[in-house]
Deep mutational scan, measured.
Amino acid sequence: MSIQHFRVALIPFFAAFCLPVFAHPETLVKVKDAEDQLGARVGYIELDLNSGKILESFRPEERFPMMSTFKVLLCGAVLSRVDAGQEQLGRRIHYSQNDLVEYSPVTEKHLTDGMTVRELCSAAITMSDNTAANLLLTTIGGPKELTAFLHNMGDHVTRLDRWEPELNEAIPNDERDTTMPAAMATTLRKLLTGELLTLASRQQLIDWMEADKVAGPLLRSALPAGWFIADKSGAGERGSRGIIAALGPDGKPSRIVVIYTTGSQATMDERNRQIAEIGASLIKHW
């Protein structure tokens, strides 16, 4: 067993022997301040990774656009098919120029040779490549099948209805392509620590998230040296922004954090800054 596999296998073990965790309302004060600064709703939840206990939450059962955070769930569904012998990570998928959609920095470079399922998941999570996500959605049967996968996990809230990039439209009061912070946090925890996926697939999923290259201005910008984070960000229309993450000190994750916002007129930089400040408060009061 590799060191990384050992780390993920012992996530519940280490967490069980940690000192009790206590909620700190100071972080919620910052979440509410972010709402004021952005002029928009902000949803927040913080779960203990081992027990699933909610440590703090704000608007945990209000719907927010998922945006690209759905790509972690998508690759979880792909990995479940791999575990069941219905898919192979090494299978190569070929596609054409007509398949390319807006923001496809990886797939646009491989029109000639195609990409493997493993490479597509890596591109979808680490670079948020939209064509990679659409190609992977095709392998599982489309958005409705991802929703069905989530329902089978016990998540009857999260739903995907459309493809990239239309799913980022974020129309107010439109339930399409949305989740709730509580539902997303619980589902992410199941994917990373539950028995739904094999140990190898859980490790692969967290490795992809740990290698995320496009979430630097968010929670990662607030992390002290030595902290662990595996995350996936999302951005959408109407001032929408979000991030889902597993993080913790001492090089291992111990909490799940989900943050979503929508309806702001603020710039992307300002949305990023507010999420980073929430992260800084979380870490300060850990």
Rank of each mutant, 00 (worst) to 15 (best):
M1Y: 01
I3T: 10
Q4D: 08
H5C: 09
H5A: 08
I11N: 05
F13A: 14
F14G: 07
L19K: 15
L19I: 15
L19P: 10
L19H: 15
P20I: 02
E35D: 05
A40M: 09
A40G: 14
G43T: 01
Y44W: 03
I45R: 03
L47P: 00
D48H: 07
L49T: 08
N50H: 12
N50M: 15
N50A: 12
K53G: 11
K53P: 03
I54D: 06
I54Y: 09
L55Q: 08
E56A: 12
E61M: 14
M66F: 09
S68N: 00
V72L: 05
R81L: 09
R81T: 07
D83R: 03
R92M: 10
I93W: 03
N98M: 11
H110I: 05
H110E: 07
L111F: 09
L111E: 07
T112D: 15
D113C: 09
G114H: 05
V117R: 01
C121M: 08
A123S: 09
A124C: 08
M127P: 01
S128A: 00
S128L: 00
N130P: 01
T131C: 08
L137W: 04
T139Q: 13
G141E: 06
P143K: 03
P143S: 06
A148N: 15
G154S: 08
V157S: 12
R162E: 05
R162T: 08
P165W: 05
P165C: 09
E166L: 14
L167V: 13
A170K: 06
A170E: 06
D174K: 03
E175Q: 14
D177Y: 01
T178D: 02
M180T: 15
P181D: 00
P181R: 00
M184W: 01
T187S: 12
L191D: 00
E195V: 08
L196C: 14
T198P: 07
L199H: 12
L199G: 15
Q203S: 13
D207F: 10
M209T: 02
M209N: 00
V214C: 06
G216T: 10
P217D: 12
L218F: 04
S221F: 09
L223W: 03
P224V: 04
A225R: 13
W227E: 01
W227C: 02
W227Q: 01
S233T: 14
G234W: 00
G239M: 02
I243Q: 03
I243N: 02
I243Y: 06
G251Y: 09
K252Q: 11
I256R: 00
M268C: 05
D269K: 12
E270F: 12
N272M: 03
Q274Y: 12
Q274W: 15
A276N: 09
G279M: 04
A280I: 14
K284Y: 14
H285Y: 12
